[in-house]
């Protein structure tokens, strides 16, 4: 499957990935509107890890052997047969946070407003996920 690869040596910590991720998962998909008019604001589906000058954006790795799949009580977490991406059905999610407990990367987040989890969906069929498309320094690569 196509994955997002991280080149941490070129991540400049600008967080444009995060900003565009929010917009991508907003209702309008428009940056200014998403930030200024849509409340509650969607969560970013990725985390930017920073320690000193080292930083990188981390999203769900869509593991082959994904612990979140086995940990999910309701079957909300599932693997898309076509793309092999690990996706999340928000209608089935009961907010038990088990997936968060088992995720080795800490990339599943609590969406407190909706009491469900929030994770990377590879922008649901976009040719290139928004974080990759908007990284100004090619620190994220989708291949």
């Amino acid at each position: 499957m196509k994955r997002i690869y991280i080149h941490e040596e070129y991540c400049i910590g600008c967080r444009l990935c995060e900003i565009h991720c929010i917009a991508q998962h907003s209702r309008s998909k428009k940056l200014i509107k998403a930030f200024k008019e849509e409340f509650p604001r969607p969560l970013p589906r990725l985390v930017v890890e920073e320690s000193g000058y080292i930083s990188f954006a981390l999203q769900c790795r869509h593991c082959e052997d994904a612990p979140c799949l086995s940990a999910c009580l309701t079957g909300a977490m599932y693997r898309d047969e076509k793309t092999k991406a690990v996706l999340h059905d928000k209608d089935k999610c009961v907010g038990c946070w088990m997936c968060i407990m088992v995720c080795p990367f800490g990339v599943i987040k609590r969406d407190e407003n909706n009491k469900i989890v929030s994770k990377c969906d590879l922008c649901n069929g976009e040719e290139v996920p928004a974080c990759v498309a908007n990284c100004p320094n090619e620190a994220l690569e989708y291949r």
Partner: peptide, 13 residues
């Protein structure tokens, strides 16, 4: 030579 800044230049690009 500031590592925060120098990584902004990706030599591939």
């Amino acid at each position: 030579q500031d590592p925060y800044l120098s990584k902004r230049l990706n030599p591939n690009i």
